[in-house]
């Protein structure tokens, strides 16, 4: 075999190997196949306190991820936190009176938004606002309430 041909074969194998590594990293290790291509619609909700919620946190329905938090900002009128979230178009039958609450996965886990479906006939659409929200549990506030109750009962 000619030397140049041998080099070309080896380089071809090398490039193929690295492309396979890239595919492996994309599909097995990271979330590449996630929400990029699926059609989504965006809804928002006002929270008194979002605790440690971060952008890109998951939105879960009965524990199944159905969307992601896209942006968190302060509502200029009510001074509450407005959380924007994208929901997969496959879940477009969610009642408009659904409620969302900020929950924590495990004792030390990340915070996510849990959605509890309501019973209304109308469904959530692009741009609709979820009215019923429950804020994150802030440990300091809980301890504060507990201390107040504790001292009252004395």
């Amino acid at each position: 075999m000619k030397k140049q041909t041998k080099i070309e074969i080896w380089v071809g194998a090398f490039v193929l190997m690295s492309l396979m590594a890239l595919a492996y990293l994309a599909f097995q290790v990271s979330n590449f196949s996630g929400w990029k291509d699926r059609p989504t619609y965006e809804v928002s909700a006002l929270f008194d306190n979002i605790g440690g919620l971060k952008e890109r946190a998951p939105l879960k329905l009965s524990g199944v991820v159905i969307g992601r938090i896209t942006a968190i900002e302060i509502d200029p009128i009510s001074f509450k936190a407005r959380v924007h979230m994208k929901i997969d178009q496959a879940f477009n039958q969610l009642p408009v009176d659904s409620s969302v609450s900020i929950l924590t996965s495990g004792l030390l886990g990340d915070q996510y938004v849990g959605l509890e479906p309501g019973g209304d006939e109308e469904v959530l659409q692009q741009g609709s606002e979820i009215e019923m929200t429950q804020s994150a549990m802030v440990l300091e506030e809980l301890i504060g309430q507990f201390l107040v109750k504790f001292s009252e009962s004395d």
Partner: peptide
Amino acid sequence: MSSQVDWQEDV
């Protein structure tokens, strides 16, 4: 792993 690792941010 795949819920923590982001394609753009990390890879």
